[in-house]
Write a protein that binds this DNA or RNA. Sequence first.
DNA 1: CCGCTTTGTTCGTGGTGGATACAAAGCCAG
DNA 2: CTGGCTTTGTATCCACCACGAACAAAGCGG
Lengths: 410, 410
Amino acid sequence: MTPTRTTKLERGRGALGPALELVHTGRAPTRAVLTAELGVTRATAGAVAAELEALGLITVDSRPAVAAGSQGRPSHRLSVDPGGPVVLAAQVHADGFRAALVGLGGRIVATVPGAVTVEADPAQVLTEVVGAGAGLLRETGRRCLGAGLAVPSAVAEPEGTALNPLHLAWPPGAPVREIFTRCLAEAGVTGPSGEAPATGFAANDVNLIALAEHRHGAGRGARDLLCVATGHRGVGGALVLDGRLHTGSSGLALEVGHLTVDPDGRPCHCGGRGCLDVETDPLAFLEAAGREPGPETGLLKRALELLRTEYATDPAVRDAAHLLIDRLGLGLAGLVNILDPDRIILGGLHRALLEADAERLRSVIAERSLWGRSGKVPVLACELDYSGLVGAAELAWQPVLDDPMTAARG
Amino acid sequence: MTPTRTTKLERGRGALGPALELVHTGRAPTRAVLTAELGVTRATAGAVAAELEALGLITVDSRPAVAAGSQGRPSHRLSVDPGGPVVLAAQVHADGFRAALVGLGGRIVATVPGAVTVEADPAQVLTEVVGAGAGLLRETGRRCLGAGLAVPSAVAEPEGTALNPLHLAWPPGAPVREIFTRCLAEAGVTGPSGEAPATGFAANDVNLIALAEHRHGAGRGARDLLCVATGHRGVGGALVLDGRLHTGSSGLALEVGHLTVDPDGRPCHCGGRGCLDVETDPLAFLEAAGREPGPETGLLKRALELLRTEYATDPAVRDAAHLLIDRLGLGLAGLVNILDPDRIILGGLHRALLEADAERLRSVIAERSLWGRSGKVPVLACELDYSGLVGAAELAWQPVLDDPMTAARG
DNA sequence: CCGCTTTGTTCGTGGTGGATACAAAGCCAG
DNA sequence: CTGGCTTTGTATCCACCACGAACAAAGCGG
């Protein structure tokens, strides 16, 4: 009889999730590092790595890469399996959408843009989106373990409804997660089990930018990461605490747009005056620079273009940028006082403002935050392409990271 | 030979901490409930309860209490051991201090107030404080497992320094935790091991109020608890996330005092105008009511007294209260938009304002927070006596809750 | 080629908690 | 009062996971 004893492959379940997360985020390039990061013995790390390899999630390469230079036996290299399973990720925005297949490590395997008519309702849009994603799955033949969606709206939890879908002809309160999940089922997209139809995840795009940057971009290693970004209109925020998105008790945390940054500023629909939302978004910049803002769509692109090309030459543009930097700094200082992050990353127009005059922004923050504390808070630019998309993928990967054994067994 | 097999008492280490926390917070009155809450089998829960009893932390009473009414075998009652070990807790404030011995469950076993001269430096004050606590320990003969201190100041982590000790003649940046620990060592106060000198914990008093209320008071069961409270001057905030204090990356989170709540308000030392800090504290109330504020110490008491006695009779007092309620509501709405708590509790003057006109406060919050969400956020009054003291004790109990086996073995 | 260092692997062990069967302690119906 | 019924506590066995120790492997340098 063959022995029925537990095989080595079945060992190491408990540390499986943390180990996969370390490889996924690039913090465990070798098995030796994995051993140290997990705080386990070499034996355990070996079993865990072998199991993840058997699940088809990572590859273990025993050949030394570049002769690390240190003495002793070279450690096996760990990396995400480039041919492993993927998740379906999608981002919807005012101008259309983009669907993608994303592997572990935030690698975009395949991606395709799409357009939708402005008047399309959520079901129409998401059918298109999921159709595009399913097309990519067919073309590539990859195994799919889940699906995530980024929307330009606050998403209420646990309902999964989009409360204020900006610039989309969606009814406020549309149950996007439910619709997304239904579209996935209709398209036959598989989920964590590998077979059952996928449960869709959906979240606000800025939240997902923060998540992606935390794991694969400018936020790596931060414990309390604050992300602030603009789209075409308005300002969004997100906070990652201890590696997890902080969405608050109903998913609506970090609505940072209505901090007062100019007591004499213009009125805001929220009832206040001089809110961050209306004082530091692309529209505010274009108006402050004395330009004709033009149509709603493309506001962000035009603002970025103006800042890039004429900041150095046109005093009106420079003054407008400085005005926005000052107001943004005030808002960020307020957030520093409340949240005390150890890193801030900026996206959209705010990122461009940071790059235009980082010193000015940092000094405003330092000046208006208590005890000069934030003088020490690094303020960085988002660095990932398609971070919303990658963040949506992170959402879908999460069940696999939490329990690789049951979520990824094939 | 006696068998060297593992005894039952040595089992169940992993679930020990969560189990103690459940009994400590009153969420596990019986062993059956403990089983359900822990999500383990009855066997495991039994082993865990037996171990905690053997450690002298809880008592297991097999006699049915009041005939629960339901059928089936009555479950053993679990409770904190009233004769068990204690921690030394102390709170320093403008008028003096209070030292206490606090058992599990937030029970104050013994307490004594103390006075200090206004000019006393931290070492003098804490020597007095620890002396008073050590006296209580001698009188009662209780075993001491740690010590915690509440101070009316932001406390920077990980340094443990008091940045802005209000109304105390302490130098900003005083290393209170270090001084506290030294005083404990000099007084021979024992710590978690039961023998080694205790490491002192110190934190901001509002943070500790939030922690205490979360575990034993109005915040029980909340997942994201926001606490806002006034002392004599200024406004403090605190946030408890998933049962843990959120102090931010450097301990300085929830400095909520400088949210703008009145664009036309008075200037604040922070550089802004109309900050929550200067618009809703006791001094602001007394001035708004047209009263002579008088000396710094006792401001809170006089404000509370005025509100209690003349709110119903003096229109000036009522108008002042309404003004402060409106401003407080604006500030709380801002915090709701950023933090999305599922409960808010108010202390000090803010608590009294809530009790004066809860409806007005709730409607202001609902009006100025996005999507009417906060209309559903309960706003409650702090309900514990000496919550700062109890919170300081929670800080000291934490190592025991995290690992009862090593922290409490006698 | 032989030490030296570091890494991977095999094998045994221990502690943790699950499953099961059984005993105990209450209520209720007869 | 006695025999179901229900729920809780307990004893025993066992699966699992990670640790420790010993050994093998793979590089470097003399």
